[in-house]
Design a protein around this nucleic acid. Structure first.
Lengths: 198, 198
DNA sequence: CCATTTGCAGACACAGTGTCCATGAACGTT
DNA sequence: AACGTTCATGGACACTGTGTCTGCAAATGG
């Protein structure tokens, strides 16, 4: 038997209500009653699906990460050397489509636990893929792999945060990707217009 | 008349109690009663100093930012071109001394509001100083200033997050600063051991 | 069409909030 | 050292939100 329509409807309604309300008021300010009411669901029903609002939020985050992972895998294997080409573009597109969910995660809502999960997952995957390529191509990284992965992911997440923020002018994803690629290749001193370090 | 000893004592006790408890249990899980008890302060007294735990947290963050600002100013003006030299080293040292406070901010505790404030303040100051130098030295940035500032700050914050985390091996601040400087100058492809982009 | 599952509304004890007040102690000043 | 002022205390208060449980109605899948 397939999943009951009602449960699917309820869960989806609660997901959407949470996202909308977190954007409006922030996670902490929300009550289970608020979420249930926005979703047109009885409070008792909420508790029959989730243990609390943290649980609901965790589910939303896990779903987002799973979708991202599914989209990134083919893009990564199709990219020869780094992550700043096709994979980044795929990330940006996903973020544009799921802008609201990205915003609440990147903002650090919920004591930053979803954000922490997001960062750790990305950083770990990056470091892994990174080591794999270094070995496959017979090159030796000139900088600690974990540090480099953190820098890599941190940079992209910082841009994501800036790019998905409320007040920023919508720059095309391709434009952002191009800039970051140049940054990765030429370094930040080049980008700032200078030629020499201090 | 100087400030009353008692108020200074209680405020400091509440500050410390908050930091310790957030590290132990996370901001959301805390009650005002918990914080007051840990600080050996009556609950009523808490409310005579702060409007709630968010207010207390905001004060802690503001203090941290103010201290950082005071330390960064001379380091920035003494550095010729970029931020990745002396200023970064100063940031790392401050983070090492105030490790606990940095950790709870960088983690995104409190729905990420303190983190947001931290990021925005740093990014704004960076972008400002960045434009100022470009004009003074007659160079033209090759990449959007705001984007570049976000990348710059995002990278350093990502490293800070990694460096101040619980489980990581303590790498010397000077070592971290050296790596980041090379990264900024030569770009990430160089760092990864490759020579060409994808 | 029926048995099962799900959603609903209302009730419950409980925990934490934010505010108030009377009392006594600690404080800075003279 | 004595002063008036300021601050901390502990208990009380109404109130909001939590988490769980009930009986009953409606939707669902077979």
């Amino acid at each position: 038997m397939a999943e009951d329509r009602r449960t699917k409807r309820t869960r989806r309604a609660l997901h959407d209500a949470l996202v909308a309300l977190v954007l409006e008021r922030g996670f902490t300010a929300l009550t289970v009653e608020d979420i249930a009411e926005r979703a047109d669901v009885a409070r008792a029903t909420f508790y029959s699906h989730f243990q609390g609002k943290e649980d609901l939020f965790a589910t939303v985050t896990a779903d987002l990460l799973a979708e991202l992972g599914a989209r990134m895998r083919p893009a990564i294997s199709g990219s020869a050397v780094g992550f700043t080409g096709k994979p980044l573009l795929e990330l940006l597109r996903h973020a544009r489509e799921e802008r609201d969910r990205y915003r609440i995660v990147l903002r650090g809502e919920g004591d930053g636990k979803p954000l922490q999960l997001f960062l750790d997952t990305c950083a770990q995957a990056t470091a892994e893929e990174f080591r794999l390529r270094a070995e496959r191509n017979g090159v030796t990284p000139r900088i600690d792999a974990d540090l480099l992965a953190r820098v890599w992911v941190g940079e992209q997440v910082a841009v994501l945060r800036w790019w998905t923020a409320d007040d920023v002018a919508p720059m095309p994803a391709e434009e952002v990707a191009r800039m970051l690629l140049e940054l990765a290749v030429r370094g930040r001193y080049w980008a700032s217009g200078f030629d020499a370090p201090d």
